[in-house]
C-alpha cells in the first residue's frame, strides 16, 4: 500500500448489459486527495463512481483501496461513503436516526453512539435539528445530513454525486466551503462527480475529465483550465474558437489560413473569446451579435474562418451590428492542443 495510489482503478471496464459504459480506465488517487470526475452526461463518470461504491458490477479490471482488492467486495463491506445527488435520506427517520443508521448496524448503542452521532450532526451545523424528520429540512440542510451520515462512518473514500447542482447560488458557495473544510479536517479522500467545470475548478485538487467512458485528461485545475490537451477539453473549459493546424496553417471552413509562429508540435490551436485580438490583426469579420456582460462585451463575428467569438473590455466603444472589424489570432495567446477532437 502506498499513499500515492490509495485508490487504484486498474483497467476498469463497466457495462450495462451489452453497452459498454467505461472501458479500460486507469486512475490512481492519493490518500487525502480531492478529485473531481468531470464530463458531460453519459461520459461514464457516475458509472465509475457507482463501481467504486460497489453498486455497479465490474466487467473486467480491478479496484484496489488501501492495499486491498475490493473489486468483488459487496458494497456494504467496502468502507466507502456516497452522498447521492438526491441525498437519499430515510424520510421516516429523524436527523439523529439517519446519522445513527450505520453505527447501529455496526452494533453501537447507548452513550457512545449518541456522542458520535451528535458530534457528527454538530460538525455540519445541524444540532438544533437533530430530532426533526428529514423531509422538514431544506435542500441544503438535507445535504448536510447526508454528508454527516456518510462521514460518521469514517469511510476510506467519500464520494459525492453532483454535490452542488441542486443548490441555489448562495448555498452552493457555502457548501463548497463546507466540503473543503470537512475534507481538510478529516483528511478523507474525496471524489466528486460533476458536469460543471466551474465546480470542479473551484473545489478539486485534481480533475479527471472523462469522455465516452474513457479519461480524456487528468490535471490540476490550472492544467485543465489553461493547458487543455484536446479540443474536447478546450471546448469544455471555455475555449470557443478552435482550429486544427496543418503545415503551420489553420484549417477553417473557408479554407486554410496562415498563422505566424505556429508551434510545430500542435494538432490544433484554441482561443478563448478574450484571447482574440479585436481591432488588430490580419483577419476581418462582420458583427452578427453583441451582448453586454458587465465588465466585457461579447461579440459573435461572421468571418471567412467561420463564426468567431470575441470579447472586448466594456470600456472600449461598442461595435454595432453589421460593422466590419479586424481581428487577429495571435499564436502566443492560444492554447496548444495535442489532439483535435
Amino acid at each position: 500500500m502506498s499513499d500515492a495510489s490509495f485508490l487504484l482503478l486498474d483497467g476498469l471496464t463497466l457495462a450495462y448489459g451489452k453497452t459498454t459504459a467505461v472501458e479500460g480506465l486507469n486512475l490512481s488517487i492519493r490518500r487525502g486527495e480531492l478529485v473531481a470526475l468531470l464530463g458531460p452526461s453519459g461520459c461514464g463518470k457516475t458509472t465509475t463512481m457507482r463501481a467504486i461504491a460497489g453498486l455497479m458490477p465490474v466487467k473486467s479490471g480491478r479496484i484496489v483501496l488501501d492495499g486491498r482488492d475490493i473489486t468483488r467486495t459487496p458494497a456494504n463491506r467496502r468502507e466507502v461513503g456516497l452522498v447521492f445527488q438526491s441525498y437519499a435520506l430515510f424520510p421516516h427517520l429523524t436527523v439523529f436516526e439517519n446519522v445513527a443508521f450505520g453505527l447501529r448496524l455496526k452494533g453501537m448503542s447507548g452513550k457512545p453512539l449518541e456522542d458520535r452521532v451528535l458530534t457528527a450532526i454538530a460538525s455540519v451545523g445541524l444540532s438544533p435539528f437533530a430530532n426533526r424528520k428529514t423531509p422538514e429540512l431544506s435542500g441544503g440542510q438535507q445535504q448536510r445530513v447526508a454528508l454527516a451520515r456518510s462521514m460518521v462512518m469514517e469511510p476510506k473514500v467519500l464520494m459525492l454525486d453532483e454535490p452542488l447542482s441542486n443548490l441555489d447560488a448562495r448555498l452552493r458557495l457555502e457548501m463548497r466551503t463546507e466540503l473543503q473544510r470537512v475534507q481538510k479536517e478529516s483528511g478523507v479522500t474525496m471524489i466528486f462527480v460533476t458536469h460543471d467545470q466551474i465546480e470542479a475548478l473551484a473545489l478539486a485538487d485534481r480533475i479527471v475529465v472523462m469522455r465516452n467512458g474513457a479519461i480524456e485528461q487528468i490535471g490540476t485545475p490550472e492544467d485543465i483550465y489553461n493547458r487543455p490537451e484536446s479540443a474536447f477539453v478546450a471546448d469544455f473549459v471555455g475555449f470557443e474558437n478552435i482550429f486544427a493546424l496543418k503545415d503551420g496553417q489553420l484549417v477553417t471552413p473557408g479554407g486554410t489560413a496562415p498563422i505566424a509562429d505556429a508551434p510545430a508540435d500542435a494538432a490544433a490551436l484554441a482561443w478563448r473569446p478574450r484571447a482574440v485580438a479585436l481591432g488588430n490583426g490580419p483577419f476581418s469579420g462582420v458583427v452578427r451579435s453583441s451582448s453586454f456582460a458587465g465588465s466585457a462585451r461579447e461579440y459573435l463575428l461572421d468571418t471567412p474562418l467561420g463564426p468567431i467569438k470575441a470579447e472586448a473590455d466594456a470600456a472600449h466603444p461598442a461595435h454595432d451590428l453589421g460593422d466590419t472589424v479586424s481581428f487577429g489570432l495571435p499564436a502566443a495567446t492560444a492554447a496548444t492542443l495535442r489532439r483535435f477532437g
Binding site: 453498486l55 458494497a75 456494504n76 466507502v80 456516497l82 447521492f84 430515510f90 424520510p91
Partner: peptide
C-alpha cells in the same frame, strides 16, 4: 420510493434484505 435510499442503506452497512426491512417497508407502510 426511490431506489437510491436502499443503496444508501447498503453503503452504510445494511444487507439488501436488511435495507428492505429497515428502509423500504417503513416507507410503504
Amino acid at each position: 420510493l426511490r431506489s437510491d435510499m436502499e443503496e444508501a442503506a447498503v453503503l452504510l452497512g445494511a444487507s439488501r434484505l436488511g435495507a428492505f426491512f429497515s428502509v423500504v417497508l417503513p416507507n410503504i407502510r
